[in-house]
């Protein structure tokens, strides 16, 4: 399942997508430590799978929380995506 966490407003779409079918295979959970804004948490979903998701209190501010990792020029790889061994994380912006 692809879980899209975030929002859209007048300025654009701001979603972090987690492919839970890939995420459930992960043992390292490296995204949690990699994110400087502590966006990722590991929780059991409705299907009893232990997967990464975006913390409830961060879902309405991903545009701003992710901004330090997304400089306008010389953008480095995003830490969460770079650390994910299963390429399960995508950003929509």
């Amino acid at each position: 399942m692809k879980a899209n966490y975030g929002y859209m407003d007048g300025s654009g779409d701001y979603f972090i997508t987690i492919d839970t079918d890939k995420c459930v295979e992960c043992e390292t959970r490296a995204c949690v430590a990699a994110c400087p804004a502590n966006l990722f948490v590991i929780e059991e979903d409705d299907w009893d799978d232990l997967v990464a998701l975006i913390a409830q209190d961060k879902r309405k501010s991903v545009k701003y929380d992710c901004a330090p990792c997304k400089p306008v020029t010389d953008r480095p790889p995003l830490p969460c995506m770079a650390e994910c061994p299963f390429d399960a994380i995508e950003h929509s912006w």
Partner: peptide, 15 residues
């Protein structure tokens, strides 16, 4: 019947 993809917009009241 398995959920494959979902998106929630809980911030913007315009929808």
């Amino acid at each position: 019947g398995k959920v494959e993809d979902f998106a929630v917009n809980e911030k913007c009241a315009a929808g």
